[in-house]
Amino acid sequence: MSETESHPALALEGELNIYGAAENKLRILEFLSRAKEAPALDLSGVTEVDTAGLQLLILAQREAESMGTSLRLLDPSASVLDVLQLCNLTTRFDVSGALECNP
């Protein structure tokens, strides 16, 4: 977990798939409950995303919105971008640091 006072960010690394889904869900919910302002998920180290992983990203965004804030996805890796583009979700998320990959 790499977070600072002003830019709280949770780094998800490796496979963002069903194997770690339950654990990752707990981490995300716990992180969001602590990060009051502009929470972000650092996705630069994600190597693989499946449906379970995508559900978690959607869940995270929804939770953040319900708390009156919005979630940012930091520097998503190619695997993350691939799924977001496939599902036409690049514009639904606040994606930063990946503009060059996202026409």
């Binding site: 069903i18 889904a21 339950a22 990752n24 869900k25 919910l29 379970a52 559900q55 978690l56 959607i58 869940l59 929804r62 939770e63 319900s66």
Partner: peptide, 11 residues
């Protein structure tokens, strides 16, 4: 169809 928060089953 996805429930929010705690109710959501990650698998």
């Amino acid at each position: 169809a996805m429930p929010s928060g705690e109710e959501m089953d990650a698998e």
